[in-house]
Amino acid sequence: MASSSSSFRILCILLLCCSIAFGSDPSPLQDLCVADTTSPVMVNGFVCKDPKLVQKNDFFFSGLHLVGNTSNAVGSRVTPVAVAQIPGLNTLGISLARVDYAPWGINPPHTHPRATEILTVIEGTLQVGFVTSNPENRLFMKVLQKGDVFVFPEGLIHFQRNVGYGNAVAIAALSSQNPGVITIANAVFGSEPAIPSDLLAKAFQVDGKIIDQIQSKF
């Protein structure tokens, strides 16, 4: 009986280890898997290009030294460097972006559904923050100076605002080759087709005319 009980405990431990192993993202099984964006095959990510056709430029991007055009409604510009820009990032689980901010420009509240973000301020002063999930909806907010770093956990709504008097620049590193972005205002008020205005009026507890006015801007 003792032997049977001991064997059962060992089996439980092995099953637990297996569940932990299968619960994490798989590691690449080859040195590289450069994205073949022309392939008609649909997979979770991109099909690998024939290794014999891979070139050095599949791992290269030039342009992060260029200032982004912030002449828009929010006063910021994101320059992404993900798998769409560097096919060699396919299966590697990383990407980055440059974010430029005009004085008092914002990177509006948004989420990355597939990535945690770590933001480093290169120039200027940024007010940054994120909000935890329901029901707490706790806000963590801080003012960052040049050289400061802040982390936005995966999937949580976060934002940045330039609170200095000059332009600001930040570099964001993300834990996905294709982190995705959902800008809250665009998604809620600019969906196609539009979310019914009476539904949004009830959700935001405002008059329907206000919702119509906001939707007209998106």
Rank of each mutant, 00 (worst) to 15 (best):
M42A: 14
V43A: 00
N44H: 12
G45W: 01
V47G: 00
V47N: 03
C48M: 01
P51K: 03
K52I: 09
K52P: 01
L53Y: 08
V54R: 03
V54Y: 03
K56T: 15
D58Y: 06
F60C: 10
F61R: 07
L64Y: 13
L64F: 13
H65T: 14
L66E: 15
G68S: 03
N69T: 11
N69L: 02
T70R: 08
S71Y: 03
N72R: 08
N72P: 02
N72K: 07
N72L: 00
G75T: 08
G75Q: 04
S76K: 09
V78M: 04
V78N: 07
P80E: 08
V81E: 03
A82H: 11
A82R: 06
V83G: 00
V83R: 01
V83W: 00
A84M: 00
A84C: 00
Q85D: 04
P87T: 04
G88S: 06
L89I: 04
N90S: 05
I94V: 14
S95C: 02
S95N: 03
R98V: 12
R98C: 04
R98P: 03
D100V: 01
A102G: 08
G105Y: 05
G105M: 02
I106S: 12
P108H: 11
P108K: 09
P109Q: 11
P109L: 06
H112K: 09
P113H: 05
P113M: 01
A115W: 01
I118D: 05
I118R: 11
L119D: 11
L119M: 13
T120I: 12
I122E: 12
I122N: 07
G124H: 02
L126E: 08
Q127C: 13
V128M: 05
G129D: 05
F130I: 11
V131G: 09
V131Y: 09
V131L: 06
V131D: 07
T132I: 02
T132V: 05
N134D: 12
N134C: 07
N134T: 13
N134L: 04
P135E: 07
N137E: 08
N137S: 14
R138T: 15
L139Q: 12
M141T: 15
M141L: 14
M141C: 15
M141N: 14
K142E: 14
V143Y: 08
V143H: 09
V143Q: 10
L144G: 10
G147D: 01
G147R: 03
F150Q: 08
F152T: 12
F152L: 07
P153F: 05
P153Y: 11
P153C: 09
G155H: 02
G155K: 03
L156T: 13
L156V: 06
I157D: 10
H158G: 13
F159N: 11
F159E: 08
F159T: 12
Q160G: 13
N162A: 08
N162V: 03
V163C: 04
V163Q: 05
Y165G: 13
G166A: 11
G166S: 10
N167F: 10
V169C: 05
V169K: 12
A170G: 08
A170V: 02
I171Y: 12
I171P: 00
A172H: 07
A173P: 00
L174K: 14
S175R: 04
S176W: 04
S176D: 06
Q177G: 10
Q177I: 02
Q177D: 12
N178I: 03
N178M: 09
P179L: 01
G180K: 03
V181S: 14
I184S: 15
A185E: 10
A185Y: 11
F189Q: 09
